[in-house]
């Protein structure tokens, strides 16, 4: 839904690669997971635990809690408040999160 400005695209030295649901996503150092996600084709972040509806980042300032994702296995993390770092593993949070011996 979003694209980086032309004049900023060249700065490849300032990028990292994160993983969203197993796919590599190029992100700019200093940006948040949510802002990187919004440049992806599928820019939604989770499905709700109530009806399973898809939600996407909405406020980007930490007050709507729509961009909740699993970050390195941690649930209920606001992607808009999470800075990217190289190799960061992020998953969309699908419905209620799973709890069990594996986590």
């Amino acid at each position: 839904m979003f694209r980086l400005l032309e004049d900023d695209r060249g700065r490849m030295e300032s990028t990292v690669t994160i993983e969203i649901d197993g796919y590599p996503v190029i992100a700019r150092i200093g940006e948040t997971v949510a802002s990187a996600l919004l440049r992806e084709g599928a820019s939604w972040s989770r499905t709700t635990p109530v009806s399973g509806a898809r939600r996407a980042p909405y406020c980007m300032m930490g007050v709507c809690f729509e961009c909740l994702m699993l970050v390195e296995g941690e649930g209920l993390v606001r992607a808009c408040q999470t800075p990217v770092r190289d190799g960061l593993k992020v998953e969309r949070q699908m419905g209620p999160r799973k709890v069990g011996p594996s986590c």
Binding site: M1, L4, L5, G30, S35, M60
Partner: peptide
């Protein structure tokens, strides 16, 4: 207003400031 694709203007302005992204 809960659909993916509806965002606030404030959210878009935040993206403008960092990392400098604009609607495609």
């Amino acid at each position: 207003w809960t659909l993916a694709g509806v965002m606030t203007v404030g959210a878009a302005q935040i993206l403008l400031k960092n990392p400098g992204s604009v609607p495609s």
